[in-house]
């Protein structure tokens, strides 16, 4: 009996065959870092729940019990956050140290600052058993950031192992990627420098007027200043273009269309996520965006960038006759 074979769609958690050993190990570490961060995030959110429901209207004896439980939960959250900060966030520390050594405002610098600004006061609050803790925001931030980076790594590695398509076209896409990447780095660099300065200034201003909210506002601004969606814009759009160029036997005009579409997608993603971040900034300045909410909005913009690149791939992966027919239809008088 014949077996109908469908085109296998590999899971994003599986490692593509044919990767060299070093890339395979990098992928495995990235997966484990991601898994640990998500695991710790869920547990820490559970431990943070008593802190969310606490308010001063609770009867005093119940409040005393609740506060005692919150202290215990904070210690448990601390125990879970330490491996996330040390192991899962390791690429962030390394990237931040690299860009500081080269005296550039890379995107890892605000991320590292955001983690430190949320983690250190939380450890202090846990130790003196008083005040707000942000372990939930730290783990959520790291987990969402690693999710975005894992998707970008998958896109890059799936391009690296693909073969059988004309090398010349991939070279042209590669040239386009470098030009767009340099442009995106310039935009993101300026944005990051301005945003970090704003976060520090806002933290100082809130510390002057209302110290209770200063850390929360500063952490939210630093989380928003992470341009992960902007950093994903060019790699995902060009990875989609590489994949489309490898799959369907595109002719020369269709390939030119693909190049133009990839450029358009990358720019739309870049400026779209920039606008989104700028829109969130005044809300965070006013203290309306809690750090965890800032992390969620950041994940949303990253996922939107990924989906935009996926649309590009879907549009150009169509078999040749469909594309040719579409072009004739538009070219006809």
């Amino acid at each position: 009996m014949p077996i109908i074979r469908r085109m296998p769609v590999p899971s994003i958690f599986s490692v593509p065959p044919g990767l060299p050993h070093a890339a395979r190990q990098a992928r495995r570490h990235a997966l484990l870092r991601l898994g640990w961060a998500w695991l710790a995030m869920m547990q820490v959110m559970m431990f943070a729940w008593p802190g969310y429901v606490r308010h001063d209207g609770i009867p005093p004896d119940a409040l005393a019990t609740l506060d005692w439980a919150i202290v215990l939960m904070n210690w448990a959250s601390l125990a879970l956050t330490v491996p996330v900060v040390l192991y899962s966030a390791w690429p962030i520390w390394r990237g931040a140290a690299d860009s500081l050594r080269r005296r550039q405002a890379g995107m890892d610098v605000p991320v590292a600052l955001g983690i430190v600004a949320a983690f250190v006061p939380s450890v202090y609050a846990t130790w003196i058993q008083r005040g707000e803790v942000y372990f939930d925001s730290v783990t959520m931030f790291v987990a969402f950031l690693l999710t975005a980076r894992y998707l970008a790594l998958c896109a890059r590695q799936s391009v690296a192992v693909r073969d059988g398509a004309p090398a010349r076209r991939h070279a042209r896409l590669e040239i386009r990627r470098r030009a767009l990447g340099a442009m995106a780095d310039r935009v993101a660099g300026r944005f990051v420098a301005a945003q970090v300065a704003l976060a520090l200034a806002a933290g100082a201003a809130w510390a002057w007027f209302e110290p209770a909210h200063a850390v929360s506002v500063m952490v939210a601004l630093l989380v928003i200043s992470c341009p992960c969606a902007m950093a994903m814009a060019v790699p995902t759009a060009l990875a989609a273009a590489h994949a489309a160029a490898a799959r369907s036997g595109l002719d020369a005009p269709a390939f030119r269309q693909l190049l133009a579409a990839a450029r358009r997608t990358a720019r739309q993603s870049l400026y779209g996520s920039l606008a989104w971040h700028l829109l969130m900034t005044p809300l965070a300045l006013a203290g309306w965006v809690a750090p965890w909410l800032a992390a969620v909005t950041m994940l949303l913009s990253s996922l939107a960038v990924g989906a935009h690149a996926w649309r590009l791939y879907r549009r150009y992966r169509a078999p040749l006759p469909a594309l040719a027919a579409a072009r004739q239809a538009t070219a006809a008088p």
């Binding site: 296998p8 958690f13 599986s14 495995r28 997966l31 484990l32 898994g35 640990w36 695991l39």
Partner: peptide, 21 residues
């Protein structure tokens, strides 16, 4: 949580995720 984290680490590095097909 520790047991789950260690199990995931073992699974990833012993190649359980290498070929899901």
């Amino acid at each position: 949580v520790l047991a789950i984290a260690l199990a995931l680490g073992w699974a990833v590095f012993s190649g359980q995720f290498d070929d899901t097909e």
